[in-house]
Every structure is written in C-alpha cells, then in structure tokens.
Simulated assay, not measured.
Amino acid sequence: MGFSSRTFLVAPDDTLWRLSTSKFDRMLRDPASHSLPTFARQRARMASVVVELVASEPMRVMRTTYSVLAFDAEGRLDPSRFEEQQFALVESVVAPVIASSAEENNQPVVDATARFIAQGGRWTPSPALARAIDEAALEQRPCGRL
C-alpha cells in the first residue's frame, strides 16, 4: 500500500489536464523557463488529489484540495501569489485556535486578511466536476497531460 499525489488543472470549459508533480515544481521554481501558454492570462483552477495505491493500482481518493493559479500573458505561473495563498490557507486554519486563546485572555482578534487572501486561492467544484476529478485521479477517466 502507498499513496500518490495527482495534480489537475481545469480549463474554463471544465476539461481536465493532468500536470505532473515534477513539472508543477519546475513551474514554481523557474516560471520563466516552464510556462503553459494554454493558460496564458488566466486564473486556472487546480485540484490536488492524494490517492491510495494497492499493488501500484489507484484504489481510492484520500483527500482533494482545490486552489487557483494565476498565469501571466506568456503562461508563466505567479509563484509568489500561489505561496501567499498557501500560507494564508494555513493561517486561516491556525487562526481560530489563536483567536480562542486570545479571547480567553480578553484580547480582541480582528485581522481577517489571511482569510480573504486564502479565499481568493480556493474554489469549490460542482458535484459533477468533483466526480470527474476523482475518476481521472483513479484512472477511470482519460484526460490530457500537460
């Protein structure tokens, strides 16, 4: 038994494109050399899926997260924006714990900046699209590769 991470970009018409982890990593580290012209000038939806493997075969989806990637006019990813959104997501998870502690000490907590930044980097698929993403992650539905 093992796990595999699968990444998909979703085109405006809901077409799914599989993006290898190594390519996504290169896009984050060196966007100038690793662009996706197909997504130029777009905010593309991304689904990151963790799949359980048994004998190297995908068995079930364990977790899916949805985020948004911003591409410039040449199709280069904006890594700083993605990082900012990911840090804000983590902060929005940790903030309620901190707020609870602050309330116990009678300290008001009102900064919601991270929540708004994080919201700009998330999306929720329709049930049909979520099913299509799961099927693609489990290799039950064909999809193109980037």
Rank of each mutant, 00 (worst) to 15 (best):
M27A: 10
A128E: 01
A137H: 00
F116E: 04
S48Y: 13
R76G: 04
I98C: 03
L28V: 13
M1Q: 00
S100L: 07
R41C: 00
N106K: 13
P125L: 00
L89Y: 12
T64Y: 02
Y66C: 08
C143S: 04
V93Y: 11
W123K: 00
A11Q: 01
T64E: 05
R6W: 01
V110G: 08
F116V: 02
S33N: 15
T38A: 01
D111V: 07
F3W: 14
A128P: 00
S126Q: 06
T64V: 13
L77H: 01
F71M: 05
A114W: 02
W123V: 11
F8T: 01
S22K: 11
S56V: 05
F8E: 00
L9D: 01
E74L: 13
R131T: 01
L9A: 09
A44Y: 04
S100E: 14
W123Q: 05
M59R: 04
G75P: 05
P31R: 12
P96R: 11
V97A: 12
I133T: 04
G144N: 02
A55N: 07
W17M: 08
L9P: 06
L53G: 05
S35K: 15
Q107F: 07
D14E: 15
N106G: 05
E104I: 05
R63V: 10
I98R: 12
C143I: 00
A99S: 12
I133E: 02
W17E: 03
D72P: 07
T124H: 12
R6N: 14
L138S: 03
N105M: 05
S56K: 09
V109L: 01
L129N: 14
A128C: 03
N106C: 06
F8K: 07
A102P: 04
M27V: 00
L36A: 03
Q42I: 01
P127F: 03
T15N: 04
S5P: 05
R145F: 15
L129I: 05
R76L: 10
V109H: 02
A102R: 10
G144S: 06
L16W: 06
S67Q: 08
H34S: 14
K23L: 10
E91C: 12
E57G: 09
L77C: 03
R41L: 07
E91L: 15
S22I: 06
P108H: 12
V61C: 04
A102E: 02
